[in-house]
Amino acid sequence: MKNINRRSMLFRAMALGAVSTLPGCDYEDPAHPDIADKFLHAMSAWNDRVQEALFDPHTLAPTFRAEQITNPPRFNAFYDISQAPVVDPATYRLELGGQIQDKSPWTLAALNALAQTSQITRLTCVEGWRVIGEWEGVPLGDFLRRIGADTTCRYVSFKCADGYYSSIDMPSALHPQTILALKFLGAPLTPPFGAPVRLRIPTKLGFKNPKSIMQLAVTNIYPGGYWEDQGYNWFSGS
């Protein structure tokens, strides 16, 4: 079930902004979500459903040539690059939770031993800028099937070393271009770009590509996300 209050705080902040230009609305009582809150929340949920219906698992995101790769790559997070979390690759374990048969944690070596795929795709930020990069890793669909995940569940959720979290719909998780990336530009991921493991999903906006993933879970309970809970559209597919 989608949490009724998942966005109310965020939307209040948003609505406040909107209302500064919409005279006649009052947002002074935080205990009662106002009409603009409810309206935006409902429309965003509707847009989630429309995007789920529009999603074709066989439509691929465009791919690019090596010379089109953005150089130098662009760092982006909700903190400065110096604050990027540093995870020790030797002791790293990817923890699994939720509707998964084999929840044994995965070492980096074990993930690297799985069949890998690489892609040169465009990462588009919700802000409008975009970069082209090369990522290599394990197709998430292969990984989910290998660990005995219930792929009839609605969500795959991710928790990161920096406190970031996000979640995606199962059809997008099973898309052939959705990977648990271990390499970026031909070398193992570095901390600013999501070491040791990040999600790379070119059919969604940049903020749906969580970095430095520590936990992965499969669930039917809406997990939300760091930005999603602040008002960004949850599906945010492209």
Binding site: M14, A18, L22, S44, V126, G231, Y232, N233
Partner: peptide, 10 residues
């Protein structure tokens, strides 16, 4: 309209 990007997109 919308005080920050998320609000504007919504």
């Amino acid at each position: 309209i919308g005080q920050w990007l998320g609000a504007a997109i919504a």
